[in-house]
Computed example of a mutant assay.
Amino acid sequence: MRVVAKFGGTSLGSGDRIERAANSVADAVEAGHEIAVVASAMGSQTDDLLEEISFDADPADRAEIVSMGERTSIRMLKAALAARGVDATFVEPGGDDWPVITNERGEIDAEATQRRVDALAEKLGDTVPVITGFLAEGPEGDVTTLGRGGSDTTAMMLGNYLDADEVVIVTDVEGVMTGDPRVVEGARNVGSITVDELRSLSFRGAEVVAPSALVYKDEDLGVRVVHYQHGDLLAGGTEIEGSFEHLIDMEEAPLSCLTVAGRAIRNRPGILSEVSETLAEADINVDAVASGMDSLTYYVEKAVAEDAEATLHDAVVADDSLSSVTVEDDIAVIRVTGGELPNRPGVIRSLVDPLAEAGINIHDLITSATSVAIFVAWADREDTLDIVHEQF
């Protein structure tokens, strides 16, 4: 089996932990598996280095300085593997075997990287490459960085390009938990989770796998998250299932927009739950909901709009803080969901500006961690869909 094992900073935070990491790699090699290792900087070394840059450093100099954390880690881990009789080679930017190449814009050059990875793959089995995470090499040979969570991105990308069977993310949590064990009593490990679920959690603060890394997860690539104390690269932890696909979808049937107005709705605890519950009791499905300071907006299928209006009207009459409900028909929704969406600065503007130039009014725009829903007049749906396709 071909495995990419990524060791996070906490899993390499001391000599003892480096030895534990080396033991797990050595055991996998002894069992006959091809292993490539991606290493983060030890502990908080990268953050410590950044804090010490109190002067106005050139970006190239800054990248060289912060790269020292990963460069130290791979040398430590390579030496620990050699002490166990494992043939290992450290791989860093500037070296002949270095695989991760970026273009002039700082984005990963897929074609150049794939060629480098193919060359690296020929050596798997004969040696264990110990590769710096987080770092890349620019088109002029300069050191660049992949941003926060870049070691996860390195590991997942290499797993994809190497046609690995599995990527194992070794970290300081026992896989994905039902809640933060430091806050929630009784939090437990989740045996498996989908890419979509994990991406949403990661983008909203769950420090398990960097959201940008999950772009490289496809159906054929297994991914697991394990605790560094587990000691076994090939079992345990949380399995990440599926793949995160880039989709552009348009609802086939027209929607209706129902707006409930009221005084200081935003400051009224439980009002969203109370009003929404009336629709649930009437067996009316809500396609989307948005809230403002003095309003709640529900999108439902046009076919049930009259029933939804009657139901919400009853809620308005029964609650003195609510004043009125209005309905607007023939609304279309186009949703964009996918890989690079949360990591594209200006993505909302890239959608809004072309629509404005085309004279299309946006009725509503609702975003989540991994998707954007654009609501427009039904008559504008095809033009909107064409513009969204052009942008993605």
Rank of each mutant, 00 (worst) to 15 (best):
P129C: 01
G236H: 01
L12Y: 04
T145G: 07
A136R: 02
L124E: 11
R263H: 13
L214V: 05
S243C: 14
Q45M: 15
A121E: 12
S54E: 14
S324E: 15
K302V: 03
A21I: 09
V223D: 02
G222I: 10
S202R: 02
G94E: 14
R188S: 14
P99H: 06
T326C: 01
I362A: 05
T326N: 11
T72K: 11
V38N: 14
S212C: 15
Y298K: 02
R148I: 04
S321Y: 13
G205T: 11
G8Q: 10
H246N: 14
T370E: 06
G359I: 00
D152Q: 02
E245V: 10
D172I: 05
F203D: 07
S350W: 08
E306W: 06
V173S: 01
S24F: 00
V209A: 05
S73P: 04
V352T: 01
R62K: 11
V209E: 02
D283N: 15
E252D: 14
D386W: 09
R2Q: 14
D16L: 10
L81A: 13
T178Y: 09
G222C: 15
A187F: 09
V183Q: 11
A187E: 00
N23L: 03
D16R: 12
A39V: 15
Q229A: 10
D172A: 08
G147L: 02
E30H: 09
R268C: 00
I331K: 07
L77Q: 06
K123W: 11
A305M: 04
A356K: 05
T144E: 07
T89I: 10
T154K: 08
A155V: 08
A210K: 01
E239R: 05
P211Y: 10
E306G: 03
G69V: 06
G222E: 12
V286Q: 15
V325P: 09
S212F: 10
V376G: 14
V336D: 08
